[in-house]
Simulated assay, not measured.
Amino acid sequence: MDAEAVSLEGRIFAGVENSSSGEVGQSTIFTYHQDQDIIWAEYSGGSIIRGYLVGTRRGEKLHFRYAHLSTSKETSTGVCDSTVEILDDGRVRLHESWAWESRPETGNSIVEELK
């Protein structure tokens, strides 16, 4: 399967790894959508009550901004660049490099499709 050709529409992901300054964890669930080169997702779970991301896709590269509300009732925003990887079992893994816009930290994370 080609990472550039696989659609993200309707795929459900969960956090696998994250930098210490991140808020996404294994209990955070993302539901992705894709319409041609436009992507968006809703996410929640763990320390996040509700979150949204929106952006674009070029081949295996995603670029988006995100905003969410944490369980401490604080809003956070940031920007993320991701690379799509197809795992041997056909699931999708996203390698993410992100930076908060609402505070100074940056980090890396991985989310994987649930089966």
Rank of each mutant, 00 (worst) to 15 (best):
M1H: 09
A3H: 04
E4T: 15
A5C: 06
V6C: 04
V6F: 13
V6P: 03
S7R: 10
L8D: 05
L8Y: 00
R11C: 07
I12D: 01
I12H: 00
I12C: 08
F13Y: 03
A14S: 06
V16M: 08
E17C: 06
N18T: 12
N18D: 14
N18Q: 13
S21W: 10
S21G: 12
G22E: 12
E23H: 13
V24K: 14
G25V: 02
Q26P: 10
F30K: 02
F30Q: 02
F30S: 06
T31Y: 02
Y32T: 07
Y32R: 05
Y32F: 13
Y32Q: 09
Y32I: 07
H33I: 01
H33C: 00
H33F: 00
Q34M: 02
D35R: 15
Q36G: 12
D37S: 04
I39N: 12
I39F: 12
I39C: 14
W40L: 05
W40F: 14
E42D: 09
Y43V: 07
Y43R: 07
S44E: 01
I48T: 01
I49R: 14
I49Q: 15
R50V: 07
G51H: 05
Y52M: 12
Y52H: 10
L53Y: 09
L53M: 10
G55Q: 05
G55W: 04
T56E: 11
T56C: 05
T56G: 03
R57S: 05
R57D: 03
R58M: 12
G59L: 06
E60P: 10
E60Y: 05
E60K: 13
E60V: 01
K61T: 15
K61Y: 15
K61V: 15
K61F: 11
L62D: 09
L62W: 09
L62P: 15
H63N: 15
R65S: 12
R65Q: 10
Y66T: 03
Y66V: 01
Y66P: 00
A67G: 14
A67K: 12
A67I: 14
A67Y: 14
H68A: 10
L69C: 05
S70E: 15
T71L: 07
K73N: 13
K73M: 13
K73D: 14
E74Q: 09
E74C: 12
T75E: 12
S76H: 15
T77V: 11
T77K: 08
T77G: 08
G78D: 13
G78V: 10
G78T: 11
V79Q: 03
C80D: 13
D81H: 13
D81G: 11
S82F: 11
T83L: 15
T83D: 01
T83G: 04
V84F: 00
E85N: 15
I86Q: 01
L87M: 15
L87P: 06
D88M: 05
D88A: 14
D89N: 04
G90D: 02
R91W: 00
V92Y: 09
R93I: 05
L94T: 13
E96G: 00
A99R: 12
A99D: 14
W100M: 03
E101V: 15
S102K: 02
P104A: 07
P104R: 07
P104S: 10
T106N: 00
T106V: 09
G107K: 01
N108S: 10
N108Y: 08
N108D: 09
S109I: 07
I110E: 08
V111F: 10
E112K: 09
E113S: 07
L114N: 01
L114Y: 03
K115S: 09
